[in-house]
Every structure is written in C-alpha cells, then in structure tokens.
Nucleic acid binder design. Structure first.
Length: 701
RNA sequence: GGUCGCUUAGCUCAGUUGGUUAGAGUACUUCCUUGACAUGGAAGGGGUCACAAGUUCGAGUCUUGUAGCGACCACCA
C-alpha cells in the first residue's frame, strides 16, 4: 500500500461534446489503451449513454459506453475505463463484450504508437505530462489523495505493469476433471488419493474446480525450455503471432515434423521461454524414475505411497503432480497426501532468515541428539496443527533417550547373548503383564501409523508411556532383584522376558529413533539390523481378567503406601510396615502370593493381609479395602484428620451429583442400560469410600 | 470479501463415533543423591474446557451466533 492519487477524468461524448462521462483512475496513462467505458446497467446517471460513444482525451479515439456488472455505482464515479491489455479485470470485461484489446505500452514501459503525442515516453513521465495537459484542457475534474495498493516486484522493487502478451497455456478442464474424481469416494484404487487430515480435500478442490487455464511460459533463464519450435522461415526469419510452430520431444523430432509440412529447407527457432517451475515439478514422481522410458525404477517407485508436505503447496505442487500422473501414467502418483503443520517459533511466528528467529536443526542435534530431536518433533506433530517450537521442547526427547539407554545399560551385563525362547520358563504375573502391555502397545502404534491415520504423536506417546511407566518404572523395578541376583528360575525368566520385550520395543521405536535403537540392537547381540528387520508380530500371552485384578491390586497398595509416605514426608529409604485389609477375604488370598511385587516398588519392612487395625496407623483406601501403615511416634492425628476429611468431602460431593443423576427418571429411562449400570456402580464405590473414610476418622477419635 | 484452522492447567498441547471425578509434557511446592537414569524417583497443588443460546436423559465433544488470534486465496477502477 502506498500513497497515490485518484484522478477523475472527463471523456466527452462523440455526438455532443457538451455531454460526457467522468471516470476515476489511479493510472491515467493507461487511457491510451482504453476500449470502452463501463457503467452499471441500472445506474440512472449513465443509462442514457449506454451504446453511445465517448472520446478518449488527447487522442480523441471513440470508444463505446457499455453496461457491465464490473462497474460498481458505489465506487468512484460509478463509471470505469476499460483497458483490457493492462488490467486483469478489464481483460475479463473485454472478453465479455468482444472488445479487441489495445496494447498501449512496450515491454520497457514506454508508451507505444497508440499514445499519439506521448509515444516513446516512460509511463510515469507520461502520467505527469498527461495530468497537466488534462488539467489545462479542463478535462481533469478532481484529484484525490488516497492510499492505494500497488503491486511491486519482490526482486527489482519496480511497480508491476500488467501487459497483454502471447503465452503458452495448459487447458485445464481435461486435466482437472480426473484429478477431482480422484478424491471422490468411489474412485478406482489406482486413481484414488486421500488427504490426511481430510479437510484439505476442500482446499484441493477449490483450486481445481475453476479449471482455470494454466499459464506455463516464463521469461527466465532457468528451467526447461519449452519444446516448441517456430518455423521462422515462413515469416521472414522472425517470430510473430502468426508464425507456425511444431512441437517435439527433441529438436530432431521437431525438425522431422516441420520438414513434412514446410519442406526440408525450413528454418526453426526454439521458443525461448521456459516452463513454469511447477510444471517441471509436477513431473517429479515419474520424471525422476526414467520416464518416458518404461524403466524398472519407474515400475518399482511409481506409484509411491504417501506424500508428506505442507498445506501451502497443495495446488502448486500436489494437485499438479496428481493430474500430471493421471494424465501421463494413468495412475495417481501416491494414495495418500499427509499435510503437516508449519513449524513456528516460540511466539507463533513463521521462521525466516530476515527475522532471524529460526531454530537450526543441526545445532539442536548437536545439543540433544538426532533421535531426541526426531522423537520430540513427532510427539509435537498432531493432526496438521502448527507447532510452536523452542529448544526446551527437545529436552523431553533427550530425557527419554537417556531413560531407555540407562535401563538397557543396567540390565546388559545380565543378558544372555542369544534370544532364548519363553517356553519352559517360570513366568511370574509381572512377566506376563509386561508381555501383554507390550502387545497392547504394538496394536496402539500400528493403529496410529496406519496410512489413513498417521497420528505420529499418538505412536510416540504410546511408546513413551510404555517404555517409561510400564517397562522401566514398574517391570524393571519389580524384577530388579531377580535380574541382578544369582542364577535362579526367577532370574532366567525375568532376564529373558526383559530381552524379549526390549527386542519388540526397539523394533517399534526404530522408525522414531533409528540411531539409539540400532545401537541397542547391536549391543545386545541381535544379528539382524532393525532397518531391514521385521516389524514385531503379536505374541500370545495368557493374562486373564483375574490377573489384571491382582496387578491393579498390587499397584493400588503401592500407591496407598506412597500416599502415606508423601503425606508424612518420609524418606523413600525408610522401611514401612504395611497391613492390607480387604473386605473380601478371597481378594487377600488371591493377592498375597504376588505381594512380593510391592517390595520392588516400595521399601517395605513387612506386609501382611490379616489381623486387626494396627495402633497409631495412617490409612489409605484401595478398591475393596484399606491399607494401614503404623507410624508410632510419627502419626499426627490432626494432620491425618485433615487429609482424610478432604478426601471424604470429595467423595461426598461426588455421591451427591451421582444420586441426582440416578434420581432423574429421564436419565434412567433414556440412557442405555449399561451406562445407567455403570453410574450405579460408581455410586456404590463412592458410598463405600464414604463409609470407610468415616470409619477411619472415627478411629482417629 | 472467500475458505480453513485455533481458543482446554502458569506455558505447550492431547482429548477418535456425545456417557469415569477432563489428561500429558513442562513449570511450581514438599521430600529423596536408594545399588540404571538428578537428563532421576515419590507425593501434592493447579482448569466454571473463549463467550452466549440451542439440541439431548447427558455437551470439552453436536448446531447456530458472538469475540479474539492465525493461515491461504481473491480483490482493492
């Protein structure tokens, strides 16, 4: 936007010079290219002039007044000069009315013979002189200062001047139609393209649907020269608008064709314009594979699977690859287009060299590690959303890599070289649990990485949780003593299970963290590189619901003990005596054989499941029971009371809302029975909690 | 002007067909250098899901509207 002027100029009527019409323009010098003055058909001010001629000032060339919707009665004077050769909109108006464009300017921005006395003047010199002349002649009605949008060239800084020139075009309708069909539901498999996220189909269609012909010639040095040869011997050795031409894949081919029509002596000159860079890029999926030859590479790599790219390139490149592929090979170049978000800086601004707000990946890799950077970026990649990036975000990736590495380093001396079978080992509940969790994680990762899903963040997070929480914090801690201990069935089982899970884990992590996983693979003596190895297969593991209950029980006891420890700020190293009392004696019987797991996760002096409530004990609830931790000399009844009351308050509040929900007849009759039953179950659980907490408070006195 | 996206904990973001007391990472408070990892472990605090109306037994989730932010495209005689 810059400051400019808005000149109102009077065009006199041809039949009665006292009459006329005033048009407003920001570029008066273009009036030499005028072919009409347009007004709105319903505009009362000008209705009577429609069909009559007015005269262009200075050169007095007559032009018609036409009615066209382009003229907006609200804008300017309501009358607009039409200069098809020097304005995009006017060009369209000219087409609608069958007006022959008049080019009034040369490529060096001097005015041409159409400008009469102004011929040969530079555009802005002409403007200055013309305004003065119009003013003196009384034809300049008004001058208004206003801010106008002027297009500047991003390289030369010059004002861009539209001018009508002959160019090469691709007729789009035959190209666009198959490309549009490719994203419709019923498209044949090899001609179908899916966008992820699918909302980008809309962007894609918006570009193609107008079927606007594509101007492919460019007046540049770099690029593929357009394979058109003019037969210049037919037009005195010059290239003119009427010079015949031939096309060919090579000059020889063009020459043969030209010779057939124009004789062997004809002289050819190749078009100097080059193809639009996107035309060349559109051929990329197959031109890089040897096309037009039917090479092995082409057969192997066309079509490919997934194109990963940014949304601002959907039309420029993606759509053009699709319609070119469909046109030249009859198949879509890929079945899926994954549109990722844009990486922005911390403040949400695009990174740019001029702003200097870029984050150099090489620097980040040096600081955090390549896998850490890659994993962190994948974690941040959710459904095409933009990513506000800052260096601290790579810390999580680095910490994760460190965690995995240290776990392996710890177990490494105990691992046996080859991967033995799980058959014949005495697998504990913990072993079967981690094997089952590993299988669940495999399914999660597979679902997330499906070509139709491509939820990279989900895959990364599933692996993160499994590795950190289940594999390291739970399984490894529980089995630590067995793994590092003397040879025993427990050691053999735990070491083998650890290795088995680790091998699956690094295979799953490999696409996300290729370096550290390959390093680990080598360190544990697995012979086949992950990059060429197989994706893990699901493993059959016995883990019935009863086992799941026991595992939950163990973890809830641990959590209860930790709550007490945390509540009293007791050091983790201080052993605690723990008594767990279940409402159902069967639960105690089921859990007690597996209670050893608790001592892997918490420092325990003793753990039993019977006897009465110990004296001076802090308590915490677990599903279906209570955990007591005697704290003689440490127990603070007042603090304990506060803690329990807070929890009681929460439980009571929930009971109130839950009862309200279940008293609502519409809910009970309207909701599916299983939902209602689930809500009842919740209420029962909370009522039980209220009862237990009330009891615990009463015990405190 | 057209199209699309975003608005959820201090910050950065998940939350897949409407149905646990809305989650994670980070930051914060307290405790801990315990024999893989302090790039670590444990406990805890923190959100009327931008606002308004509607649909529904039930809305962070669906509909409409409003506000703010952002992107792309078009236009600006």
């Amino acid at each position: 936007e810059t400051k400019g002027h808005f000149w109102s100029i009077r065009y006199a009527s041809e039949e009665d010079p006292s009459q006329g019409i005033v048009v407003a323009t920001t570029r008066p010098e273009t009036l030499f290219g005028d072919v009409a003055v347009a007004v709105h058909a319903e505009d009362e001010r000008y209705k009577h002039l429609i069909g009559k001629n007015v005269l262009i000032p200075v050169i007095n060339r007559p032009i018609p007044v036409i009615a066209d919707e382009h003229a907006d009665p609200e804008k300017g004077t309501g009358a607009v000069k039409i200069t098809p050769a020097h304005d995009f909109n006017d060009y369209e108006v000219g087409l609608r009315h069958g007006l022959k464009p008049v080019v009034a300017m040369n490529l060096d921005t001097t005015l041409n013979h159409e400008a009469g006395p102004y011929a040969g003047m530079k555009r802005f010199d002409a403007r200055k002189k013309l305004v003065k002349e119009l003013e003196e002649g009384g034809q300049l009605v008004a001058v208004e200062d206003r801010v106008i949008a002027v297009p500047y060239c991003y390289r030369s800084g010059d004002v861009v001047e539209p001018v009508l020139l002959a160019q090469w075009y691709v007729k789009m309708a035959p190209m666009a139609d198959p490309a549009l069909a490719a994203v419709e539901p019923g498209a044949p498999k090899d001609k179908a393209v899916r966008f992820v996220p699918d909302r980008y189909v809309k962007t894609y269609k918006q570009w193609l649907e107008p079927r606007r012909d594509w101007c492919i010639s460019r007046q540049l040095w770099w690029g593929h020269q357009i394979p058109v040869w003019y037969v210049v011997s037919e037009t005195d050795g010059q290239v003119r608008d009427n010079t015949p031409y031939v096309v060919g894949r090579t000059e020889d081919e063009a020459r043969r064709r030209a010779a057939e029509k124009f004789g062997a002596a004809c002289v050819l000159k190749q078009e100097e314009d080059v193809l639009d860079t996107w035309f060349s890029s559109a051929l990329w999926p197959f031109s890089t594979q040897g096309w037009p030859d039917r090479t092995e590479d082409l057969a192997t790599f066309y079509p490919t699977d997934v194109l990963i790219t940014a949304r601002d390139i959907i039309y420029f490149w993606v759509a053009r690859m699709i319609f070119s592929g469909l046109k030249f090979l009859g198949k879509a170049p890929f079945h899926t287009v994954y549109i990722h978000g844009t990486i922005l800086d911390e403040k949400g601004q695009r990174m740019s060299k001029s702003k200097g707000n870029g984050i150099d990946p090489i620097e980040m890799i040096e600081k955090f590690g390549a896998d850490a950077v890659r994993f962190a970026l994948l974690t941040l990649t959710t459904e095409g959303q933009d990513i506000k990036l800052s260096p601290v975000k790579f810390e999580g990736g680095r910490n994760f890599a460190n965690k995995l590495w240290n776990a392996v380093r710890f177990v490494h001396p105990h691992l046996t070289a080859a991967a033995p079978s799980l058959d014949g080992l005495e697998l504990s509940l913990a072993d079967r649990w981690i094997l089952k969790r590993c299988g669940e994680t495999l399914r999660e990762v597979e679902a997330a990485l499906e070509p139709s899903a491509l939820r990279f963040s989900d895959a990364a997070q599933a692996l993160y949780r499994f590795t950190w929480d289940d594999f390291c914090s739970r399984y490894l801690e529980v089995r630590k003593k067995d793994i590092t201990g003397e040879d025993s069935p427990a050691k053999r089982a735990s070491v083998t299970v650890f290795r088995t899970v680790l091998v699956d884990l690094i295979a799953m992590l490999h696409p996300l963290m290729p370096f550290i996983t390959e390093e680990i693979r080598e360190a544990i003596g697995e012979p086949v590189p992950l990059v060429t190895g197989a994706w893990p297969a699901p493993r059959a593991v016995e883990f019935p619901e009863s086992d799941a209950k026991i595992m939950e029980g163990v973890l809830s006891v641990v959590e209860a003990v930790r709550q007490v420890r945390g509540g009293y700020s007791l050091p983790p190293g201080q052993p605690l005596s723990v008594r767990v009392l279940f409402d159902d004696p069967g639960a105690a019987a089921a859990l007690s054989p597996h209670a050893w797991m608790v001592s892997g996760l918490e420092r325990i002096a003793s753990l039993d499941f019977e006897g009465g409530k110990p004296a001076f004990a802090a308590s915490a609830l677990i599903p279906g029971g209570k955990v007591y931790v005697p704290l003689e000399g440490l127990l603070d009844p007042a603090a304990e009371k506060v803690r329990l009351e807070k929890e009681l308050e929460r439980a009571r509040a929930f009971v109130t809302t839950q009862e309200g929900k279940l008293k609502n007849g519409k809910f009970v009759s309207g909701a599916p029975p299983e939902v209602v039953e689930a809500e009842r179950e919740k209420l029962r659980t909370q009522l039980d909690k209220v009862a237990k907490l009330t009891e615990a408070l009463a015990d405190l006195g």
